[in-house]
Simulated assay, not measured.
Amino acid sequence: MPDQKIQLFYGNRGLLVNEAAEAAVQHALGETERSLGYERFSAAELVRDGEEVSLRLEALLNTLESPSMFSDRVVVRIDQAEQIKKGGGRSGGPNGAALFETILRRIAAPPEHLWLVLTSAAGRDSELSQPLLKAAKQFGNVQRFIAYDNDNPSDWVRHRAGGKGIRISPQVAGMLIRVVGNDVGDLDQELEKLSLLHPDASELTEAMVAEAVQGHRHFSVFAMVDALAQRDLRKALDVLQQQLEQAPREHVRLYMLVVQQFRRLLLISSMLESGKPQSDILKKLGLPGFIGKQAITHARQFKYAELTRVYALLGKMELRLKFEAELAGVLLREIFGNICRKTR
């Protein structure tokens, strides 16, 4: 951990952002001093107007400027740092302007007693104040934790599992990621659950993971995509209805998962058409054993021409789904019907 008095951690990997911030606090204070010299604030709350907020902001400003009576060091953590902006953040009021000016000044010249830790869920640099980001890079330590849709944190899963006293192979880690997604916060929760369910297991198996993740919010989506690949329209529509009721704005994500699945089936079908053996196809896919074999079985349910037609249809639907959200349910049902309909 760099011995920096100014730290900025940001990105859409909330678990890693929080862990980095906690490590910085621990490094600066240690366990014994933490209760005496640590304070945490939310910038989103501090930029609002109102007497109560003004009093809270005044307490922060005093902490930034004055040493503590109880500790030689004071660590101030401010979350939602994307709200610290020159124009006053979300509210644009005097509290926001005062917060921005003070933070920027203290980044450039922190008092001897002060360690400042800023965090943000901002996924892009442009979401942060550019003067603040520039100053943090110049005078402190900045770390960015970003996950992209196609990220595959298999090594992270295996290392994290090891830290919890359990072993997991690359294949089983891949299976967990496919069902749960690549958000490390979600993955960490599932690994914690698995460590409690199987404390004595020498290594996690596919069966252990499959049983544990059934309650995860992504599992039903996994089942929906799997049902489409098996042409089980009724089951796919049932899960779709459930998903749209629970999260009406998630239609684009559902669509993208279907696209990802049928892109894979199209690739498999192409390799099958060219006569590639199953072993070569599994190696090319890079999926856990049983998932790869399952995908090949699903691909055999379709003719190559059918998959080409489905993939073309999915491409045509993309813009409509993004810009006609009110028709998302109708459009997705139409897509599902076309996928499951067999052609002569």
Rank of each mutant, 00 (worst) to 15 (best):
V184D: 11
I335L: 14
I103G: 03
F262T: 12
R34K: 15
A135C: 03
D232Y: 11
Q138M: 04
G181C: 01
A305H: 11
V180P: 03
A122E: 05
G292E: 04
D186Y: 11
M271C: 09
S68H: 04
L319Q: 15
L60H: 03
K322G: 05
R13I: 14
I78V: 14
F219K: 02
E334I: 07
Q294N: 06
F145E: 08
I168S: 02
L61T: 09
R158P: 04
L313Y: 15
E306L: 02
Y255S: 13
A109H: 09
V258W: 04
R167K: 12
I6R: 04
R249Y: 09
E273W: 13
L285Q: 05
M256K: 10
E52Q: 08
A23F: 15
D280Q: 13
E190P: 07
Q7T: 14
M271Q: 10
V172Y: 03
R48Q: 13
E334Y: 11
V258T: 11
A44R: 10
R124Q: 14
E65R: 08
V225T: 08
I339R: 00
K293H: 07
L132M: 09
V180N: 03
A135Y: 00
G286S: 10
G93I: 09
D151A: 03
L267R: 11
S42Y: 02
K193F: 11
P153K: 00
G181L: 04
E45Y: 04
V172C: 05
F262Y: 13
G163L: 13
E203K: 00
L197G: 06
I339C: 04
S66M: 12
K322V: 08
V117K: 00
L55F: 11
C340T: 01
Q241Y: 12
R178C: 05
R40M: 06
E192L: 13
P131K: 04
N150R: 07
A201D: 00
V259W: 05
V47P: 07
E19C: 02
E206A: 03
S66A: 13
L332G: 02
F323D: 02
A135K: 00
Q80K: 06
L60Q: 03
Q138N: 12
L191K: 09
I339Y: 02
N18F: 11
L240V: 15
A81Q: 14
Q301C: 01
V172D: 08
K342F: 10
R263V: 11
L191C: 14
R105Q: 12
V259T: 11
L132V: 00
R178T: 07
P110S: 02
S129N: 00
E51I: 09
G50Y: 05
C340E: 01
A28C: 06
L266N: 05
E306C: 02
R333A: 03
S220I: 10
A28N: 06
E245L: 12
L197T: 10
F290C: 13
I291H: 01
G30W: 06
E112G: 08
D186K: 07
E306D: 14
E22N: 12
L191M: 07
E211A: 06
R234S: 15
P111Y: 12
N150E: 13
V225L: 13
L187C: 12
V179I: 15
A236L: 15
L116C: 06
L197E: 06
G11W: 10
K284W: 01
Q189R: 13
V117I: 03
L319I: 14
